[in-house]
Amino acid sequence: MRRRSLLLQVGVSVLLLAFLALLVNNLAVNLLRTGLGLDFGWLGRPSGFALAESALPYTPSDNYLWALTIGWLNSLKVIAAGLVLATLLGVAAGAARSSSNRLLRSLAGGYVAVIRQVPLLLQLLFWYFVAFLGLPETPIGDLIQLSNQGISLLGMPLSVEFCAVLTGLTVFTGASIAEIVRGGVNAVPRGQWEAFRSLGLSEGLGFRRIVLPQALPAILPALTSQYLNLAKNSTLAIAVGYADLYAVSDTTITQTGRAIEGFLLLLISFLLLNLLISGGMAGINATVLGRMRRSR
């Protein structure tokens, strides 16, 4: 039986390798057939296209590498903001789902149910075309000025495209995080709730100081994959006109004809980004587990 399972493992590995070899070979054959080798020299040439928003100074006379960097930073901006907001929203909704308040509980339940049933792309299109572009052209509001030409948050200008992507990613990922938080919280023995109540702690304080820390080890690993999903989902931004890395790569590929190099760069950029996220989360996870062990 053991020999057989070993044989199976070796067989599957060889099969996987063969499949990879097929893909690489296919790529090489196609490149040879079209008379193209890999070439990254075009990265230094002027891009010739404008971008709607950039975190650092950018003009169309800058080179492709810089354009892609600006795209990467735009992606990073929306992903970083999305991670923070989705976590806050998710924890709040997750806590609400375990709350003793019936209204809160059903509101949070409804939110999770609706958001998880609808594809993210549709939600993004909804936020963009219906919610944000549906705003009037002349700004309304004071501290937060809203219009379909842009949003000004305490004097900080944000494009409607950025706001739509951020809202979409936050609301969508928040729903999944809420479920993860609820699962983690449910894993904490009910006795802990009774214990903090008997100590006279309020519901909110007890949740934050007693229940949540104990739920963290169950929450964190699943949270990591939600974070990675959020980062990857950010590529849908192009549907609503946000100049993220994917959108910039897209233009770059059409203008240079360097599809394979373009996709390789895109792949590597996302790999880097996601390695950063999962690395960071692994660090947090280790710290939390270490602290738990010490406190025991």
């Binding site: 010739g48 296209f49 404008a50 709607a52 959108a247 897209d250 233009t251």
Partner: peptide, 30 residues
């Protein structure tokens, strides 16, 4: 996005020295 349209737009406006903001979508419906 991904068309000569975007490049022509930039070429024309750059040559005329007219600033503009491109809002780029993936397809014509958007």
């Amino acid at each position: 996005s991904g068309t000569t349209t975007e490049q022509n737009l930039n070429d024309t406006f750059a040559a005329e020295g007219i600033p503009y903001t491109p809002i780029k979508y993936q397809d014509l419906n958007q």
